[in-house]
């Protein structure tokens, strides 16, 4: 059974717990949590991740900046990114995907939808 390392980037502890709760249903999942973009970059420099799941509105460094930085970093540019945000307007979705995110989920999230997206990404990867 393969191990999957997920990086959950969220400033809200409630959402971090809810997303982690959902991801734990994927066999072999290991979850690392980060409070914001800077915290996520620190964790990316020390560990390898299969998928990054990030919020947009966060203090210090927001999710869009994080997506842009990851995509411009040769060491991490191929890591799939899922944006999970309250910003549900079509233009926000387009902006997130244009920056290089692989999927865009608007809150409130449904566990089944999140798992479908993540499993699709993991399936595509393997």
């Amino acid at each position: 059974m393969p191990d999957y390392n997920f990086l959950v980037v969220e400033d809200s502890p409630t959402m971090r717990q809810l997303i982690s709760f959902a991801l734990k249903r994927i066999p072999g999942s290991k979850i690392v949590e980060a409070n914001d973009g800077i915290d996520a970059l620190k964790k990316l420099s020390t560990q390898k991740f299969d998928v990054i799941l990030t919020d947009i509105n966060m203090p210090i460094m927001d999710g869009l900046k994080l997506v842009s930085m990851v995509r411009n970093d040769p060491a991490h540019k191929n890591i799939p990114i899922v944006i999970i945000t309250t910003e549900g307007a079509e233009e926000d979705r387009k902006r997130g995907l244009a920056l290089g995110a692989n999927a865009y989920i608007a809150k409130p999230i449904q566990t089944a939808d999140l798992l479908t997206v993540v499993n699709d990404i993991l399936g595509n990867k393997s």
Partner: peptide, 14 residues
């Protein structure tokens, strides 16, 4: 703050 998070993120209020 936690109540605000729940109402915004789990219920979807703006």
């Amino acid at each position: 703050k936690i109540i605000l998070e729940i109402v915004m993120n789990l219920i979807g209020a703006e």
